[in-house]
Structure formats: structure tokens, C-alpha cells
Design a binder for these strands. Structure first.
Length: 879
RNA sequence: GGGGUGUUAGCUCAGCUGGUUCAGAGCACCUGCCUUACAAGCAGGGGGUCACUGGUUCGAACCCAGUACGCCCCA
């Protein structure tokens, strides 16, 4: 035989992927005779490259879609990417820099031309990488959130929501990057642990009458340069130290402006000095405090992080320079009581590294309360199911406390907000400039208004404002709401994504589904865990602890990597990735490969009778049993468990047991019935393996026999549930235990495996061993098997299922050791019997427990009694 | 600070309705094997006070309460 003993994935993966593509197996069209099964991919960032999280996520989607396809459903997996405003702009800016061009020198249109150039050249690499993994996406349906149809949908939705009163402009605290000159979303902000200084400043209390000695209150702050923006000092109403200050006023140091002392339970008594300066324009918590107490806001910062005229002092200085200077001046004025170091978290920009400035600015918002209601209900009443369900609670708490969604971004790459400002500062919202002009003329009552008088909002919409429409927009559900695709594929079936974006994306898709199509976007949401390294650290570029997925595929094969990822990834739990898992996956590929080599190598002798009927009947039952478990796991999205069932079926039952049972002696032929049955079993095994390991299974499928032109495993029918002979499975389990016991004795006594042993059986249980004798003989290398009525002398014995087994030892038995072993087992069994008897003599147990449980206990009792009797006899024979 | 969730073998985790197989799996580990499909393998083996303390129950890894520690989300 010339086939390699090692499976070589490189030779087969590209071949089969190309072949599947050529045959159009990934492509789907609405088919009224078939049930649709649809997944939309969580669109990766167009600038992205494949990382371990994508691998896990997309492997799971591929497993689901491949199984559905084999089940005969019209399986459609829609791929695509999102335009990722911020990340892409950063890439484009970097590209321009290399060419010596600055973004500031370009018009918006020029910049966008470069952005498209970048996207066409480098964008979407990740989709090509997914092909290496074996992802069976319908590539003809690939979408991109910035393409025309999807952009139109975004604008249409914006206008629609605006007209319904769900979109408004307002001032809000945003993460401002003074260096980048834009607001950032929370996800683009990186917290960094740093040592910061806490400054204790004295605010003079304003006394009514003329008092000789001024009183002070000490306020702790890490940002002394913001005192010019203070509008109050807050204390906890329960703080006894400050009771006398309630209703009083204090003076800001250096500046002298008078501000009130307010009371709020928000202030923690033991942090700092228990007195908090309130600066609504420059701190989110202070902002909320300010809103609550109806305080004004004073913004002392410019876009670039320098102080403006509002500050009155240090105007024009950078915030950090101003901090240094004011600390000096406070010290000189004797108002700085002390400075202490403390550990704090500094928010920095992912893009520029600059320290983020919480800052009030005018932004566009989408109202959430009405949109959220149906989306909350759908999940709470299980119309949409989350796997694992523990995320329901998290989902609820978020949806019940939802805040309005800031949807504007100060960027160019994205859908530009369709708001048009009139010369008088008012604005209209319209899908295009022409309609905007019509509306503007009406609104201003000025028919002379020209298009050139209108100025479109400079900002673009948050990328999520595109992604939340994804399950609808990929099927053109906005442009053409009754088209064949959307009617057939929507609602989609399963969504597979990471819990981190449960709110940003999943919840919003659900809202959009109900708002724009009156229907859920998907029925099930499978939430994967985060891929971490073996030490539990999140994989990141800066730590350098993430392996390159393509290297792994190169090294272990796509099938090995897929299996490895799934071995340890229960839904919703983080996956501690270890290359060992992938190695295990590769080893599994090899095991399958070698089982195939064995079968492939057999010569058939048509004249031979079949000696393997029991083995064949057993494996058939065993397969059906495992298949039922597999289906059960799939129905509950236990993908990892599903793989493990198949893994054990293949490795333990098929390879270690079944093939060993039927394997002819070396270079002997096999009979027709056995080979046919075995090939049938292998085909079934390949089918259930295929979703997990598509390449090797397709390869063996085709190598195994001549196939018709369209007879591919990828579209072969998924097995059907079938009966299994439960008692046969149980009996075989007992037989395999006997085999194990004999092997154990062989090992313990150092008897070489090629030396046949004899076996005597004293049947007590009534079990009929005859059909299994040849199996025992083969697997345990037993020569002569005899049935006896009496306990055998001069033999090593063991008990299985109440029956006694003896292996004659021709007198060289260590009597003492045997006695010790048997005595130990006897004692254990007696102890076990006592506990069972105790239970059975407890009246309340006998009255209270279900009949089946009691019957079980009685069986335990009689089994134990039989075993004790047998061991005692053996012991007696050793005297 | 609020909410969620977890703690089972050296590691990662199952254990689904409290009761057949209740203490499991995979990996790792130990012993012996290059036995003609596979050393990326074969055969066998050891290993756990189910975090702790109480309670409910005939019966608890499982239900309840508290404690300790961990993680996640929100602020």
C-alpha cells in the first residue's frame, strides 16, 4: 500500500475548496421546496485580519451551515465586511502619510477617493483568509456596509426615524481625542493604569457677617486645572464633618468666583476628603450631578486641549501645562494643602494615544426606549433565544437601563448625516440634497433658497448604525421590501457572535428587525467565549500571545485547527487556547486517516462467510445511540460536546473496538458482508464528522469509492435517527469490560500480548456469552474458552456482572498477592452492600422514592451479594 | 457602588429533572509495548473532603441561606 501513514492536509484542502466552489455548493437561491437555513456573518472590520476569535466564531458558523446543508435545507451563509469608520480612516491617513499627503490638505471627496482606493486594494483580506479555514459562505452574496444599496438603507432609516421623532440633536459628554480632533466611542478608548496625583485644595467658605478668621473646606482633585470650570462643591448629606456647610457658599481658589455647596449621596465619604468639586463640562459623573441639581456648565477647553477664555486664567495653555502652572500658583497662595499619589485609570485614545478629555459636544442621538421595548420582550419570552441563557439577565438589565445612542462621528469615511443647515442655523433632514432644498424652502418660506445655500452636516454615522440593519440590508430588504430573497431568508436562523457586542450590535439588530420588518432578525443567538492564552490572558497584539491562525492551518491543517478550537469551547465560556488542542485535532485527523488506510487495504474474498454479525449489529446500534446524543447536543448548541461525542465514537468505538473486532488476521482477506457493512459505517462516520472536519472527510469520501459527478460528501444526506439495540450495547459493554480485565491482568503480570491465555467462565447471571466469544478471543488474545460450573483452582479470577472469570496460571500465582487483591475488593463490595441495605431498610426511603429508584437499589443489592459470594469462593480456593 | 455569574482531578471543563452507569470526560501524568492501520500510535494505571459553614430532604456536586475567593457587565 502506498498511502502515507500520515495524513497530509496541504495536498487536499485547496483541491476540495476549489471543487466545492466550482460546483456551486455554497451558493443558495430561494427554493420553495426546501426549508431555508440562514446565517449572516457578523461582518468583520474591513481592515481586519483573521485572529483566533474569528477562527472560533466562523468555525462554529461553518459547522452549523454544513450540517444544515446536509440535512437538505437551503443553507445560506451571507459573508461581508463593515466599513469601520475609525479604523479605516486611520489606515487611510497612514497611507497618505507615506505618500506625503496630509488629510487636512484634502477635500472630503478627495479623501474619500483615497479611502476607496485603500479599501479596494487592502480591504477584505479577512474574507480570503476565511476560505483557508473552509468557510462555506455564499461568496456571490458578499456585502459591504458602504456599498450603495446598504448606504441608501442607512440614510432611509435615519430619515424615517427622524420623522418619527426618534432622532434628535443634543449636547452630551463624549470621549474627546484632542489630538485626533474627534469624538471616540467607548470601545475606542483604552484604560491605562497609572500613578496619578491627588491635590488637596482649600476653598474658602463665604461667611455672612464679617469674620476675622476665614474658614476653609478641603477638596481633593486630580485635575486642578479644571477648577475654573467648577460650579459647586458637593458633600454627602450624611457626612457629619460638613453638616455646618449645608446651604453655604465657597470661593474657587485663585479665581474667587463664588459657588454653592450642594448635598448628594453620590459623594463617597471616605474617598479623598469627602468633598467633591463639581465640574459638569469636564467629567461625566459631574455632568449628571450638575443636571440633577440644575447647575450651569462652564466649558474651559478648546478642541485641541488648550484652555479658552472661559477659563479666565492660563488661557491658551495646554491642559497639562496649565496643570503644572496652577499647582505652582496654588502652592504660592498657600491653598495647596497636600499632594498624594494614588493608582488611577487614565483613559487614552486607541488611535493617537492622547489622554481622552470627557467633553460636552453637540451630537446626534437615537432615542432608545421605544425601540428597545419589543427587543426586550422578544428575548425575555424566548421568541429569540440566547445560548447560553445566562446572558438573558445581562441583556435585560442593559435594555431596561438603556441610554440614547450617540450616532454621530466626526469623521469622513461613513454615511454622511443627511441633515442640511439653512443660513439661519435651522436644519432639515432629507434623503438627498434636492428634497432637502424643497423642505428648506418650505420651512424658511423662502423660494429663492438655492442648493448652495444649504450646508450638509459634516459628521458621519456610527458604523453600528449600518451594522444594525445587516440581516435586512444584505437581502435588500429596504430598497425592495418584498423581494424574493428577503421573504425567503428572513428571519434568519442563527447568529454566532461574541458576548462583547451583545449590546452594541445584537440588541440593536433585534430593535431594527422589529422596527423595520416587524419581525425578529434571527431565532437563536449563540454567544462564543473570548479566546485567551493558556494563562488566561486575552490575546492581543501588544502581548504577542496570539498565534497566527494561518500559520496554525499551515502546520496542523484546517481540520485540525477547527477541531482544536472546538474541543474546549463551551458556549459563552472563554476558551483557554493552547496549541496542544490543535495538535490533538491534527492527531484526530491522522487517526481517521489511518482507520481509512486499514479498511482500504483489505482484500475481499467473496467465498468467505461473515464471522462478524454481532460486531456489525453492535456498531450499528452504537452509532445510532451516539447519533441521538449528537443531535441532542446540536439542538442545544453544545457544539463542543457534539464534537466530543463524534470524537469518542470514532476513536473508541469505531477504531479501538469495532475495527479490532472485525480486522482479519494479517494479510488475510475479509468477507463481503463485513467489508460492505464497514464501508457503510465509515460513510456514516464521515457524514457526522464532515461539519467539523470538512476537508479530510471529503477526501476519504471520494477515495473510498467511485462517486457520481455530483455525489459529494458536502451535500450527502445527513443520517436519520434510528433504533439502537439497547441490550446489545449493554452486553457489549460488559464484554469489553471482560476484555479490559484480561488485559489488565496481562499488564500486571507482565505477560506479553502475543502470548495467548486461556479463560474459564462460570456464568451466574444468565448472560449468553456465545455470540461474543470470538470477540473476546480476538481482543484479549484468548486461546481456549471454556464454561465451568465450579470455582477454578490455580487461576487468577475476576468478577464481571456477577459472573466469574478464571485465567489458569499453571501454578505460578503469587497466592498472597491474589488474596490481598481479592480481600480488598471483598471489603469494598461489602461496604457498598451495607450502604444499599441501609437505604432499603429505611421505611421513609421505600415509601418516598419512585419505584424505578427502589428497583435499582434492589438490583444493586443482589449484584453485590452475588459478587461477594463469588469473591469468597475464589478466596477459599486460594487457601 | 449596582447587577450577573462561577468555584468539581495537575489543567480545561461536563454533570440537563435531586435518585440506575454518582463522582465523569478530554488533556497532562505513571507503567509496559516500534504487536504489519496509526509512536501524531497501542494496552493498562494512579489521581478529587464537588470552595467553606449551616439548612431543607428518606436521599444533595445539584435546592436554600450565609462566608471566602474569582471573573464579567454597568456606573
Amino acid at each position: 500500500m502506498s498511502i502515507s501513514t500520515k495524513y497530509n492536509p496541504k495536498e487536499v484542502e485547496q483541491k476540495w475548496y476549489d471543487s466545492w466552489l466550482q460546483h456551486g455548493f455554497f451558493h443558495s437561491e430561494p427554493n420553495p421546496h426546501k426549508e431555508p437555513y440562514t446565517i449572516v456573518i457578523p461582518p468583520p472590520n474591513v481592515t481586519g485580519v483573521l485572529h483566533m476569535g474569528h477562527m472560533l466564531n466562523n468555525t462554529i458558523q461553518d459547522v452549523l451551515i454544513r450540517r444544515a446543508r446536509m440535512q437538505g435545507k437551503e443553507a445560506c451563509w451571507v459573508p461581508g465586511t463593515d466599513h469601520a469608520s475609525i479604523a479605516t480612516e486611520a489606515k487611510v491617513v497612514a497611507m497618505l502619510k507615506e505618500r506625503g499627503i496630509s488629510k487636512a490638505d484634502l477635500t472630503r471627496d478627495e479623501f474619500l477617493a483615497y479611502a476607496w482606493e485603500w479599501k479596494d486594494k487592502y480591504g477584505g483580506i479577512i474574507l480570503e483568509q476565511l476560505k483557508k479555514l473552509g468557510a462555506s459562505c455564499d461568496w456571490e452574496r458578499t456585502r459591504f456596509t458602504m456599498e450603495d444599496d446598504l448606504s441608501e438603507a442607512v440614510i432611509e432609516v435615519f430619515v424615517d426615524l427622524y420623522r418619527k421623532g426618534n432622532i434628535y440633536r443634543g449636547v452630551r459628554m463624549v470621549n474627546w481625542d484632542p489630538q485626533g480632533g474627534t469624538a471616540l466611542s467607548d470601545e475606542e478608548v483604552i484604560p491605562k493604569e497609572t500613578m496619578a496625583k491627588m491635590y488637596h485644595l482649600q476653598y474658602e467658605v463665604v461667611e455672612e457677617g464679617a469674620s476675622s478668621e476665614p474658614a476653609y473646606i478641603t477638596v481633593a482633585t486630580s485635575r486642578p486645572e479644571t477648577i475654573m470650570a467648577d460650579v459647586a462643591v458637593a458633600v454627602n448629606p450624611n457626612d457629619k464633618r460638613y453638616k455646618h456647610l449645608h446651604g453655604k457658599q465657597v470661593r474657587i481658589p485663585l479665581l474667587g468666583r463664588v459657588i454653592p455647596v450642594i448635598q448628594d449621596e453620590y459623594v463617597s465619604i471616605d474617598f479623598g476628603t469627602g468633598a467633591l468639586k463639581v465640574t459638569p463640562a469636564h467629567d461625566l459623573n459631574d455632568y449628571e450631578l450638575g443636571q440633577k441639581h440644575k447647575l450651569p456648565t462652564i466649558d474651559i477647553l478648546n478642541n485641541d486641549g488648550t484652555l479658552n477664555e472661559q477659563a479666565q486664567l492660563y488661557v491658551g495653555q495646554d491642559r497639562f501645562a496649565a496643570r503644572r502652572n496652577i499647582v505652582k500658583d496654588l502652592e504660592v497662595a498657600g491653598l495647596l494643602v497636600k499632594t498624594e499619589e494614588y493608582q488611577s485609570v487614565l483613559q487614552t485614545s486607541e488611535r493617537t494615544g492622547a489622554v481622552i478629555e470627557p467633553r460636552l459636544s453637540m451630537q446626534w442621538f437615537c432615542k432608545m426606549d421605544e425601540l428597545a421595548r419589543p427587543a426586550l420582550d422578544a428575548v425575555m419570552n424566548d421568541d429569540i433565544r440566547l445560548y447560553p441563557p445566562k446572558f438573558k439577565n445581562m441583556y435585560r438589565s442593559w435594555m431596561e437601563n438603556i441610554r440614547d445612542w450617540c450616532i454621530s462621528r466626526q469623521l469622513w469615511w461613513g454615511q454622511r448625516i443627511p441633515a442640511f443647515y439653512l443660513p439661519d442655523g435651522s436644519f432639515v433632514v432629507a434623503p438627498n440634497a434636492e428634497e432637502a432644498l424643497q423642505q428648506a424652502r418650505k420651512q424658511s418660506d423662502n423660494n429663492n433658497l438655492q442648493a448652495s445655500d444649504l450646508r450638509q452636516d459634516e459628521d458621519v454615522l456610527d458604523t453600528w448604525f449600518s451594522s444594525w440593519l445587516w440581516p435586512i440590508s444584505v437581502f435588500n430588504g429596504f430598497k425592495d421590501p418584498d423581494n424574493k430573497d428577503i421573504c425567503y431568508y428572513y428571519p434568519t436562523n442563527d447568529l454566532v457572535t461574541a458576548p462583547e457586542i451583545l449590546f452594541f450590535w445584537v440588541a440593536r439588530m433585534i430593535m431594527a428587525g422589529y422596527e423595520f420588518r416587524n419581525e425578529m432578525p434571527f431565532r437563536n443567538v449563540y454567544l462564543t467565549g473570548i479566546v485567551r492564552d493558556a494563562q488566561g490572558r486575552k490575546m492581543s497584539k501588544s502581548l504577542g500571545n496570539s498565534p497566527d491562525p494561518l500559520d496554525l492551518i499551515e502546520q496542523y491543517g484546517a481540520d485540525g485547527v477547527r477541531a482544536g478550537m472546538l474541543f474546549s469551547s463551551p458556549a459563552g465560556n472563554d476558551l483557554l487556547f493552547d496549541e496542544k488542542l490543535v495538535e490533538q485535532g491534527r492527531n484526530f485527523s491522522n487517526k481517521i486517516w489511518n482507520a481509512y488506510r486499514l479498511i482500504k487495504g483489505w482484500e475481499v474474498d467473496e467465498t468467505l462467510p461473515c464471522p462478524n454479525e454481532t460486531a456489525i449489529r453492535w456498531f450499528e446500534s452504537r452509532f445510532n445511540e451516539a447519533f441521538a446524543q449528537l443531535e441532542d447536543h446540536f439542538s442545544k448548541f453544545r457544539i463542543s460536546d457534539a464534537l466530543l461525542v463524534v470524537y469518542k465514537l470514532v476513536w473508541d468505538d469505531f477504531c479501538s473496538s469495532y475495527l479490532e473486532m472485525i480486522k482479519p488476521a494479517y494479510q488475510q482477506p475479509i468477507d463481503r458482508q463485513s467489508i460492505d457493512a464497514t464501508i457503510g459505517f465509515l460513510e456514516n462516520v464521515l457524514k457526522v464528522l464532515h461539519p467539523f472536519m470538512p476537508f479530510i472527510t471529503e477526501e476519504i469520501w471520494h477515495d473510498l469509492k467511485e462517486r457520481k459527478p455530483k455525489e459529494f460528501l458536502i451535500i450527502a444526506p445527513w443520517p436519520k435517527k434510528d433504533k439502537s439495540d439497547k441490550s446489545l450495547v449493554v452486553e457489549m459493554e460488559r464484554v469489553l469490560n471482560v476484555v479490559g480485565a484480561i488485559r489488565n491482568i496481562r499488564n500486571a503480570k507482565n505477560i506479553p500480548s502475543n502470548k495467548p491465555l486461556d479463560l474459564a467462565v462460570k456464568v451466574v447471571s444468565g448472560t449468553v456469552y456465545e455470540p461474543f466469544l470470538s470477540i473476546i478471543a480476538k481482543l484479549a488474545n484468548v486461546g481456549d474458552i471454556s464454561f465451568v460450573a465450579e470455582t477454578q483452582d490455580g487461576a487468577i479470577s475476576f468478577v464481571e456482572g456477577g459472573d466469574e472469570f478464571f485465567i489458569p496460571m499453571e501454578g505460578n500465582i503469587d497466592m498472597a498477592a491474589e488474596r490481598e487483591r481479592l480481600t480488598k475488593e471483598l471489603e469494598y463490595t461489602k461496604g457498598f452492600l451495607v450502604s444499599v441495605q441501609k437505604k432499603l431498610s429505611n421505611e421513609r426511603f421505600v415509601n418516598g422514592a419512585p419505584a424505578a429508584v427502589i428497583a435499582g437499589e434492589r438490583k444493586k443489592q443482589s449484584d453485590a451479594e452475588a459478587k461477594i459470594f463469588a469473591i469468597e469462593q475464589s478466596l477459599a480456593s486460594l487457601q
